[in-house]
């Protein structure tokens, strides 16, 4: 019983990964924005987990810092009712829209700084800048996400653990999943010395404290 369920999940994950792999990535990444493509395998693992956990079906999902649109597209493919991607780089938005159009999906990509976005949703998924180049780059993302959604899935650098824990408590939320994983960053900028560098990151689920027993009532 358990194995059958696991195999089915695995199969779905692989199919999603293949679809996400075909998406167009950054053409001219801007270093200051830390535009790294979420690797298809990691994106697919995360999206499938979220689908198991809270589920996308019937949900309004917002992707903050949506870049070229991977996570937003995955959420839509997994059955989210409404998906909005928010991204301040107009070139990235253009590519995200191209990807969306090619797959004929109904997703809104809004060209806006996340700080200026104020639409409520059921959940936020985000892969914010890691703050490697400018410390605290991920701060406005965390703050905004918890102000517009009761549940947030997010990826952060493992070395920011202490900051994340403190900040989440300050924002009256709790961490209810943390999983360390590797994030391969391909050589996109000339200051990267190796072709593929693996950065240790944590995948998180944050829950706002006002949300009670949400999971169980569904």
């Amino acid at each position: 019983m358990r194995n059958k369920k696991f195999n089915k999940i695995k199969m779905k994950k692989k199919q999603l990964e293949i679809k996400l792999q075909k998406l167009k990535g950054y053409q001219n990444p801007i270093p200051g924005l830390e535009q790294y493509l979420t690797p298809a395998a990691l994106a697919s693992a995360i999206l499938n987990y979220i689908n198991l956990d809270e589920g996308f079906k019937g949900k309004k999902v917002i992707d903050l810092g949506s870049g070229t649109g991977t996570l937003a597209i995955g959420a839509k493919l997994l059955g989210a009712e409404k998906v909005v991607g928010v991204e301040k780089d107009p070139d990235a938005i253009k590519i995200a829209r191209e990807n969306r159009n090619r797959l004929d999906l109904d997703i809104d990509y809004v060209n806006l700084d996340v700080r200026e976005f104020n639409d409520e949703s059921d959940l936020v998924i985000q892969n914010p800048p890691f703050g490697s180049q400018k410390k605290g780059n991920d701060r406005p993302f965390i703050e905004k996400s918890l102000s517009i959604a009761p549940i947030v899935y997010s990826i952060h650098k493992t070395e920011s653990r202490n900051f994340i824990e403190k900040f989440i408590t300050e924002l009256d939320a709790e961490i209810c999943v943390r999983k360390k994983t590797g994030f391969p960053i391909e050589r996109t900028f000339n200051f990267h010395e190796e072709d593929v560098k693996k950065v240790n990151v944590d995948f998180y689920k944050f829950i706002r404290n006002q949300t009670k027993n949400r999971l169980k009532n569904e």
Partner: peptide, 20 residues
Amino acid sequence: CDNDYPIEDGIPNLLPPDFE
């Protein structure tokens, strides 16, 4: 389903065992 999800350093990790 007889799965165990560890709590380490005060943080639970509710992920399926074969997440990645």
